[in-house]
Structures are given as C-alpha cells and as structure tokens.
Amino acid sequence: MNNQQEVTAIHHSIVDSTMAIIAGLFLIEQINKNSAKVFIHDGIKIDIDKDLIVLGLKMNLKDSLIEDFGESDGLN
C-alpha cells in the first residue's frame, strides 16, 4: 500500500468513526424525544438503531460526496 492509499484508509476510518458518533447522538435525541428507539415522520414510526443510522449516513452522505467530488475531496 502506498502512502496515499494509507492516508485515504485512515481518512475513511475517521469519517466512519465520526458518523458513528453522529448516529449515537441522533439515536439519543430520538429516544429522549419519542421515549423509544423510533424515528417519527408524518405520523409514521420507523424503528431505528445506531447501525441503521450509520448505513443511512453512509448511503446518503459519504458515498454521494465521494461520487461527486472524488475520494479525497469528498471525505474532506
């Protein structure tokens, strides 16, 4: 693995860890708001957990940003 690949791998790890923290905070907010691990939108309840939130962040943020701006700029 060359230096750039190693830096990119570390950057992915940092971004993934950050998303896990954000997911945990969002889950705490929803538990406090709804008294359960659910997200409610327009009266529809969706059961959530931290892994599901991370998956949503990854699909909607990380992958889209990498696709739009390339790996190094997208992760930044």
Rank of each mutant, 00 (worst) to 15 (best):
residue 1 M to S: 09
residue 1 M to T: 06
residue 2 N to V: 06
residue 2 N to E: 13
residue 3 N to P: 01
residue 3 N to E: 15
residue 3 N to H: 12
residue 5 Q to L: 01
residue 6 E to P: 01
residue 6 E to I: 14
residue 6 E to G: 06
residue 6 E to V: 12
residue 7 V to L: 13
residue 7 V to H: 12
residue 8 T to Q: 14
residue 8 T to V: 15
residue 9 A to C: 00
residue 9 A to Q: 10
residue 9 A to K: 09
residue 10 I to W: 13
residue 11 H to Q: 11
residue 11 H to T: 09
residue 11 H to P: 01
residue 11 H to K: 11
residue 11 H to A: 11
residue 13 S to G: 15
residue 13 S to F: 09
residue 14 I to P: 02
residue 15 V to R: 01
residue 15 V to E: 05
residue 15 V to I: 04
residue 15 V to D: 02
residue 16 D to S: 07
residue 16 D to C: 05
residue 16 D to P: 04
residue 17 S to N: 12
residue 18 T to W: 11
residue 19 M to W: 07
residue 20 A to L: 05
residue 20 A to G: 09
residue 20 A to R: 12
residue 22 I to G: 06
residue 22 I to P: 02
residue 22 I to K: 04
residue 22 I to H: 01
residue 22 I to T: 03
residue 23 A to N: 11
residue 24 G to A: 01
residue 24 G to T: 01
residue 24 G to R: 05
residue 24 G to S: 01
residue 25 L to P: 04
residue 26 F to R: 11
residue 27 L to P: 03
residue 27 L to G: 05
residue 28 I to P: 03
residue 28 I to C: 10
residue 29 E to H: 13
residue 29 E to L: 13
residue 30 Q to F: 09
residue 31 I to M: 10
residue 32 N to P: 06
residue 32 N to E: 15
residue 32 N to A: 13
residue 33 K to H: 01
residue 34 N to H: 14
residue 34 N to R: 08
residue 34 N to A: 08
residue 35 S to N: 15
residue 36 A to W: 08
residue 36 A to F: 07
residue 37 K to Y: 00
residue 38 V to K: 10
residue 38 V to I: 15
residue 38 V to G: 05
residue 41 H to E: 14
residue 42 D to M: 02
residue 42 D to A: 06
residue 42 D to H: 06
residue 42 D to L: 02
residue 43 G to D: 04
residue 43 G to F: 01
residue 44 I to P: 07
residue 44 I to R: 11
residue 45 K to V: 01
residue 46 I to G: 02
residue 46 I to S: 08
residue 47 D to N: 15
residue 47 D to L: 13
residue 47 D to R: 09
residue 48 I to S: 02
residue 49 D to W: 12
residue 49 D to P: 10
residue 49 D to R: 08
residue 49 D to Q: 09
residue 50 K to G: 01
residue 50 K to S: 07
residue 51 D to R: 02
residue 52 L to D: 03
residue 53 I to L: 14
residue 53 I to R: 04
residue 54 V to I: 15
residue 54 V to D: 03
residue 55 L to E: 12
residue 57 L to D: 00
residue 57 L to E: 06
residue 57 L to G: 03
residue 58 K to I: 03
residue 58 K to R: 13
residue 58 K to T: 11
residue 59 M to E: 15
residue 59 M to C: 12
residue 60 N to A: 11
residue 60 N to K: 10
residue 64 S to A: 12
residue 64 S to M: 15
residue 64 S to I: 10
residue 66 I to W: 00
residue 66 I to H: 00
residue 67 E to I: 03
residue 67 E to P: 00
residue 68 D to G: 06
residue 69 F to R: 00
residue 69 F to P: 00
residue 70 G to N: 03
residue 71 E to M: 09
residue 71 E to Y: 09
residue 71 E to C: 10
residue 71 E to P: 07
residue 72 S to A: 04
residue 73 D to R: 11
